[in-house]
Simulated scan of single mutants.
Amino acid sequence: MTRVFGEVAALYDEVRPGYPDELLPALTAYHGGVPAPVADIGAGTGKCTELLLKLGAPVTAVEPDPRMAAVLAHKFPQVEVANSAFEQWTPPQDGFGLLACATAWHWMDEQTRERRARTALLPRGTLAILHNSRGYAVPRHADDISAVLQAIDPTPSVDDRAEDWAREGLESSGLFSDVEVHGWHSFPVLRKDRYLQLLQTFSPFRRHSTQDQRRAVTELSAAIDGFGGVVEMDIHTILVLARAV
């Protein structure tokens, strides 16, 4: 499933929201300064990479899908891009001051991801796990959209988990300490066409048949027309920080 995003790499890069600049002061305050060097794992087309570059430290991006990695490399030629799954990637022996994973930690192997992250980090290095949780500012929008999507796919998504769901694995691993959780909200208003484009970049949509995808688009289009042609979003960015012991 990690490779389905490459099928729409350009669209993903165009419509997926990035991450707020407010994240950086929280990260540097936690770390005690600017961490260096920096790794971005499961980097996709570089939504988080773009933010991490503002730290001014060298950045390595690790992305398994060559189509996503190609978009990232084109946008950010100063970034070292490793076209590899996290599980097959060999980090440099010198280690990283910061390992970031944006909206991809749930794709990493649950049995090994904490250990692999710790191996890549310097002692007392920072692990930053972040994601954008997709919500809706208007209850009717949330109810009607959820009804359409759940009729096609009732499987719970990462957005249905507790906001700090990554905390438990970090604390129980014995490899990290001082776990903190931060959050920010943004409220973009999307036109119908933009929302339907965004929908096409999410795995619960992409893993279904063409017939089910068409059904979702048709029914959501009708629902959004009933909202006046726009969807009022509530994007909750969650940042979980942990220190390598």
Score class of each variant (00 low, 15 high):
Thr2Gln: 13
Arg3Gln: 13
Arg3Ala: 14
Val4Ser: 11
Val8Lys: 06
Ala9Lys: 03
Ala9Cys: 04
Tyr12His: 03
Glu14Cys: 08
Val15Ile: 04
Arg16Pro: 08
Gly18Arg: 03
Gly18Val: 07
Tyr19Trp: 15
Pro20Phe: 08
Leu23Trp: 11
Leu24Arg: 08
Leu24Gly: 01
Leu24Ile: 08
Pro25Gln: 01
Ala26Thr: 12
Leu27Ile: 14
Tyr30Ser: 04
His31Lys: 02
Gly33Glu: 03
Val34Leu: 02
Pro35Val: 15
Pro37Gln: 09
Pro37Thr: 07
Asp40Trp: 13
Ile41Arg: 02
Gly42Pro: 00
Cys48Val: 06
Glu50Gln: 13
Leu51Met: 05
Leu52Glu: 02
Lys54Met: 10
Gly56His: 06
Ala57Glu: 02
Ala61Met: 08
Ala61Asn: 13
Pro64Gln: 00
Pro64Arg: 01
Pro64Phe: 00
Asp65Tyr: 11
Pro66Thr: 02
Pro66Glu: 01
Arg67Pro: 08
Met68Pro: 02
Ala69Cys: 08
Ala69Phe: 04
Ala70Thr: 11
Ala73Asn: 11
Ala73Lys: 02
His74Met: 15
Gln78Arg: 12
Asn83Phe: 14
Ala85Trp: 15
Glu87Ser: 07
Gln88Asp: 11
Asp94His: 04
Asp94Asn: 05
Phe96Arg: 07
Leu99Gly: 03
Ala100Cys: 02
Trp105Ala: 01
His106Gly: 06
Met108Tyr: 08
Asp109Ile: 15
Gln111Ala: 09
Glu114Ile: 09
Arg116Gln: 14
Ala117Ser: 07
Arg118Pro: 02
Ala120Val: 04
Leu121Asn: 01
Leu122Thr: 15
Arg124Ser: 14
Thr126Tyr: 04
Ala128Met: 06
Leu130Cys: 11
Ser133Thr: 12
Arg134Lys: 10
Arg134Cys: 05
Ala137Gly: 08
Val138Lys: 00
Val138Gly: 06
Arg140Gly: 07
Arg140Ile: 03
Ile145Gly: 00
Ser146His: 10
Ala147Cys: 14
Val148Tyr: 14
Val148Pro: 01
Val148Gly: 07
Ala151Cys: 07
Asp153Leu: 09
Pro156Gln: 08
Pro156Arg: 10
Val158Arg: 12
Asp160Phe: 15
Asp160Pro: 09
Arg161Met: 10
Glu163Trp: 13
Trp165Glu: 00
Ala166Leu: 00
Glu168Asn: 10
Glu168Met: 15
Leu170Ser: 06
Leu170Met: 09
Ser173Leu: 04
Leu175Lys: 11
Ser177Cys: 02
Ser177Arg: 04
Ser177Thr: 14
Val179Lys: 06
His182Ser: 11
Gly183Asn: 14
Trp184Met: 09
His185Lys: 05
Pro188His: 12
Lys192Trp: 10
Lys192Thr: 13
Asp193Gln: 14
Tyr195Met: 05
Leu196Tyr: 03
Leu198Glu: 11
Leu199Thr: 04
Leu199Asp: 03
Leu199Cys: 07
Thr201Phe: 05
Phe202Gly: 06
Phe205Cys: 05
Thr210Cys: 06
Asp212Met: 09
Gln213Lys: 10
Val217Arg: 00
Leu220Lys: 02
Ser221Cys: 12
Ser221Pro: 04
Ala223Val: 08
Ala223Thr: 10
Gly226Tyr: 07
Gly226Asn: 10
Phe227Met: 10
Val230Ala: 14
Val230Asn: 09
Ile235Phe: 11
Ile238Phe: 01
Val240Met: 03
Val240Ile: 11
Val240Pro: 00
Ala242Trp: 05
Ala242Tyr: 10
Ala244Gln: 04
Ala244His: 00
Val245Asp: 13
Val245Phe: 11
